[in-house]
Design a binder for these strands. Structure first.
Lengths: 113, 113
DNA sequence: CCACCAATTGAAAATTTCTGCAATTTGCTA
DNA sequence: TAGCAAATTGCAGAAATTTTCAATTGGTGG
């Protein structure tokens, strides 16, 4: 039964998140469930491109889709996504700060060699 | 100055994590700093391939490298990475559970249609 | 100094992922 | 029921990533 190593499942999950459009979608959905039309106006992407990315997220089980009349409403499948996005923001901050410190050191060296 | 939108920076960060070898490296380093040689015995990858992935992580500022005599010791650059990996495990669990529930529903349907 | 081990680099080949187009599906309403 | 809007699908070309190979650097012991 056991087929995919855990670290590979993790990598695949992160890869899912590794696209600007999909990140935007998840961020928007972490505020509230939303029809495709709203996502489309909020994100700079063609309808067909958005559909592709939504399909990726749907297949992974990270979001759910539900048809409501003429529109389809998407929602996050669970709270875990929002948590991960928060952790990501924290790490990103650290990384950017780290870079900035390095940059400052380089500038200091250049100023007074 | 402000050049890259935040959601794109996030996507790039996730993309960094989207590879099995890089995930393994970060998990191992979250236990303790480690020379390349140890990573090499723990992960199923060629030395040259590992170097490529280490270079990716280094350039991003997620890990640091320090030469100690004949070997190079790598370490996580900050605690944020470890936190993110924990959040990832949680989300992955949720996703797998969600899938399992869906699977069970399908099996139930098939059993008593 | 030379030979060797650890690790890295650069670049081409192989693979994966993205984008954009044409065509289709679904539900509503005139 | 014909027509329209909302979404999706399948696919081909373009773009990005990964793998692999040959060559190189840094450090150490003989």
């Amino acid at each position: 039964m056991k087929s995919v190593p855990l670290y590979q499942a993790k990598a695949e999950m992160f890869r899912l998140l590794g696209h600007p459009v999909r990140i935007r979608v998840l961020e928007l959905l972490s505020e509230r469930p939303m029809p495709v039309r709203d996502l489309l106006t909020a994100i700079d992407v063609e309808a067909t491109g958005l559909s592709q990315h939504l399909a990726v997220l749907r297949r992974s089980g990270m979001v759910t889709a539900q048809r409501e009349g003429p529109t389809v409403v998407y929602a996050l499948a669970g709270g875990g996504v929002a948590n991960l996005l928060v952790a990501a923001r924290t790490l990103l901050t650290q990384m950017l700060v780290g870079r900035n410190e390095l940059l400052n050191e380089l500038l200091a060296e250049a100023g007074a060699p």
